[in-house]
């Protein structure tokens, strides 16, 4: 039970921790205040409580597909937030002064969306075991270990992003945001497939022999990059489109700046 708790909580926490640490590093690179993160924490806590206390109503919505649809919506919102952050950051870096004003709010919304789903899942998991009274110690210990590993990895990732040069840090942040964002889209497509809102298309490959989705590494890769051992055509296409969108948000501001300077 302990190992199951570790994997479940780590999977959820790691995903949110990476989003938070990358956005925090972006914020520090741009010399922005990090108060947006402090402000977003109580808001997230309120939303987590609301989400978990209304889980039955959410689940029953959309003909029983409510939980999957809401989760997928939150993941797509995180992806949209990431695209926005990349675009605004690069706009500023390309010399468009004053473009950073909406960034703290956008980062706060992105982090809140990333943490609501993960936080509510953890809360439901822990409270369910606490109510049953069985395996309590194992669940709590496992959750603490999983959460601790996830948060520690996030903190150390932030330190690593701050330790390298500003230029390299900016590039790494964009790279990580592209992977996490595309991973979010991948996860949302899987959720929408589960409730038949999306057809996966024909299976393109099967890498379960290499990394099984049920293995620890498979579950962690799913959390971070939306790993799917046997993805369908639609999933791969959406993943590729997501990466391209982040890349465009990275490149276009510099292109506009070049055109503006030429005039």
């Amino acid at each position: 039970m302990l190992i199951n708790s570790v994997i479940l909580v780590l999977r959820e926490v790691l995903e949110a921790a990476i989003v938070v640490s990358v956005l925090l590093a972006v914020s520090r690179n741009l010399r922005l205040s990090t108060r947006w993160l402090l402000a977003s924490l109580p808001v997230t806590a309120i939303f987590i409580l609301l989400f978990s206390s209304n889980l039955d109503a959410i689940t029953d919505a959309f003909d029983g597909a409510g939980q999957e649809v809401v989760s997928a919506g939150l993941q797509i919102a995180v992806f949209a937030g990431i695209v926005g952050v990349v675009f605004i950051t690069e706009l500023q870096r390309s010399g468009h002064v004053g473009s950073l004003r909406p960034l703290p709010l956008l980062m706060a919304i992105t982090v809140i969306c990333a943490m609501i789903r993960e936080g509510s899942e953890i809360l439901i998991y822990i409270t369910a075991f606490a109510a049953s009274g069985e395996n309590g110690a194992a669940v709590f210990a496992g959750s603490a270990i999983g959460g601790g590993i996830g948060i520690s990895l996030g903190v150390l990732m932030f330190a690593a992003l701050r330790a390298v040069s500003a230029e390299l840090s900016a590039r790494l942040c964009v790279f990580l945001m592209a992977l996490i964002g595309a991973g979010m889209v991948m996860q949302s497509t899987m959720l929408l497939e589960q409730v038949d809102w999306l057809q996966p298309g024909r299976e393109l490959w099967d890498s379960s022999a290499l990394i099984s989705e049920q293995s620890i590494s498979g579950q962690l890769l799913y959390a971070v990059f939306g790993y799917e051992a046997s993805p369908g055509l639609v999933q791969v296409l959406l993943y590729a489109i997501s990466v391209v969108l982040v890349a465009l948000a990275w490149v276009l501001p510099h292109h506009f700046a070049g055109v503006r300077d030429a005039h």
Partner: peptide, 10 residues
């Protein structure tokens, strides 16, 4: 603490 927790938990 992050490094210590990570190593300890692992």
């Amino acid at each position: 603490m992050a490094a210590f927790s990570l190593v300890s938990f692992l």
